[in-house]
């Protein structure tokens, strides 16, 4: 009788001990999902920013007051945005996968951040060019209006 009780306790304890790692796995899964959400959102925001900048460049180039000098500046902005787009759609997703599946995410997340910083620099450069182009067009327009 005592022997049976002891055996039952041993089985019960073994079963419960086997359940413990399940909770740990569940935590890891949840954290991975959360990290994936942040990575996806960063890529989506970068994509949106590039689209918005491209839209601005397009509208400026269609403006009737845009001269040759302004168009050259816009061409530089387009090249910077193309580079940012290439990085956003090829390099960032690859680095994001490394962050998710790496045994050392601290290192891989640094690489991801570095790439985002590069993209940010490209967008800032393009934005600066767009603002300069707008100012150039406005100045030209004012001069023409004064002459008229």
């Amino acid at each position: 009788m005592e022997n049976a009780k002891l055996r039952f306790k041993i089985f019960l304890t073994t079963g419960l001990l086997l359940l413990l790692p399940m909770f740990s796995f569940a935590d890891v899964g949840q954290r991975r999902d959360e990290i994936k959400k942040q990575l996806d959102a960063t890529i989506a925001i970068s994509d949106e920013l590039i689209d918005k900048m491209r839209d601005l460049v397009q509208r400026i180039s269609l403006n009737r007051d845009t001269g040759d000098e302004a168009k050259l500046m816009l061409a530089k902005a387009v090249r910077a945005l193309e580079d940012a787009n290439e990085r956003t759609n090829t390099k960032l997703p690859r680095l994001a996968k490394l962050v998710l599946f790496s045994a050392r995410p601290i290192q891989t997340v640094k690489d991801f951040r570095k790439e985002v910083d590069e993209i940010k620099a490209e967008i800032i450069f393009a934005h600066k060019l767009v603002v300069e182009t707008i100012n150039l067009i406005k100045t030209r327009k004012e001069v023409v209006d004064d002459v008229d």
Binding site: I35, Q38, L39, A41, T42, I45, S46, L49, K52, M53, L56, R59, I60, N63, V99, V109, F112, R113, V116, I119, K120, I123, I124, H127, V130, V131, I134, K138
Partner: peptide, 20 residues
């Protein structure tokens, strides 16, 4: 176009990185 250009905030890219 200028107003739209001024509304663009590149720093929104950093917010998710902080969460990450």
């Amino acid at each position: 176009i200028e107003k739209d250009a001024m509304e663009i905030d590149v720093n929104v890219l950093d917010s998710n990185l902080e969460n990450l």
